[in-house]
């Protein structure tokens, strides 16, 4: 098992902008790390630099304790799964899976045996002699995984591997990748822009924005204690509401604090005390409703159980649970301790 250490990685293109501004990360052997961020944040570039497909401008990449900046991709002990799978269209599934072994001089019988073994694990054995063009999206995805697995690499890199699948398949493959990681035990670095994938699969999540690492922690820690406004707003669905603290009824704290309220920490009643809000949009998700309400503190998005159904245009009363709010410095966006949380030992329930 192989760990990865990134030290102050920077990347800039000649006569182009700088895309990575000093990223440092220590990935443990066997860990499942998801790098997440909006497009253009540099996450794919970072992954490609680990792979060796792009050069580092500055900084050091070490894999398994060995500096690999100057090492060719083939000698880095890594396997990679590409966004569009990048299966060789002129080769059969068997050849696709065993090509890496062939290049490494593994004998024909041995590599075919290995291909068959991997194919069985991925339920691909009926398709071994087909070409990728004759496979469905999900099957292609599996072949891409098989190709990476065949080689027993210490590190797996995945670049948005599920983005071309439909929703049902994506959910299924999420579970499968997770199970596979457990079975194979290799270190896995997974890039996505989809926060659900990050939260559901990762041991640790690295959130990136504009070439900076924002936070690198477990899904629970990132969800419960986001390091800044960006992280707080990026993870969680529907996204967190941000309001200026002074607009909140009953607020007595400092003036330049922004409060982050997750939609499920605001309770809603047909009428009563609290913020008065007018429902402007109501989306049903199944068991819950997502209500968009205009209030004096700005637009708030809340989730509410369906039985408290409120129609668009109605006025409702909103009661944010401020003890469960996140507090951020309005100017810098950095996380602050919630003064209300500090006062009450136990967070009050709404």
């Amino acid at each position: 098992m192989t760990g990865i250490a990134l030290t102050d990685i920077r990347k800039s293109y000649s006569n182009g902008p700088q895309v990575l501004h000093g990223v440092s990360m220590s990935i443990q052997p066997g860990e499942f790390v998801v790098i997440v961020g909006p497009s253009g944040c540099g996450k794919s570039t970072l992954l490609r630099m680990i792979a060796g497909l792009e050069a580092c401008t500055e900084g050091e990449i070490a894999i398994g304790g060995r500096r690999v900046n100057e090492v060719a991709p083939r000698d880095r002990d890594i396997a990679m799964i590409f966004q569009n799978y990048a299966l060789y269209p002129h080769m059969t599934v068997r050849e696709n899976i065993s090509f890496g072994l062939e290049l490494r001089g593994v004998k024909r019988a041995e590599r075919h045996a290995r291909a068959e073994e991997v194919a069985r694990m991925l339920h691909l054995d009926p398709y071994l002699d087909r070409k990728p063009g004759a496979l469905s999206g999900g099957q292609r995805q599996r072949v891409a995984m098989g190709r990476a697995m065949a080689r027993d690499a210490g590190v797996f890199l995945m670049d948005e591997p599920l983005s071309n699948l439909d929703n049902a398949l994506r959910v299924e493959m999420r579970a499968e990748i997770k199970a596979l990681h457990r079975k194979v035990g290799a270190t896995l670095v997974y890039v996505t822009h989809d926060q659900t994938e990050a939260l559901s699969m990762a041991d640790r999540i690295a959130v990136m924005k504009d070439g900076h690492l924002q936070q690198f922690d477990t899904p629970a820690a990132i969800y419960d204690r986001p390091a800044n406004c960006f992280v707080a707003g990026f993870l969680g669905q529907p996204p967190m509401n941000f309001v200026l603290a002074r607009d909140m009824p009953g607020w007595t704290g400092g003036k330049d604090i922004t409060l982050g309220l997750r939609p499920d920490t605001i309770s809603v009643a047909p009428s009563g005390e609290g913020l008065q809000g007018r429902v402007v949009l109501s989306e049903m998700t199944g068991s819950d409703l997502i209500l968009h309400c205009e209030t004096d503190a700005g637009r708030l998005v809340i989730t509410a159980p369906r039985h408290r159904l409120d129609g668009v245009g109605e006025t409702v009363s909103l009661r944010p649970n401020l003890t469960r709010a996140h507090a951020f410095d309005t100017a810098t966006g950095a996380r602050l301790d919630n003064p209300l949380q500090a006062r009450t030992a136990e967070p009050a329930l709404a």
């Binding site: 060796g52 497909l53 396997a79 590409f82 990048a86 060789y88 002129h90 090509f99 190709r147």
Partner: peptide
């Protein structure tokens, strides 16, 4: 697609192998 070259490099190919095994076919 350039990703095919990259996949081959990741699979362990050298440039001439990428040319001969991926690009030429």
């Amino acid at each position: 697609p350039r990703a095919l070259d990259e996949a081959a490099y990741m699979d362990g190919a050298r440039p001439l192998q990428v040319l001969w095994r991926v690009i030429v076919p």
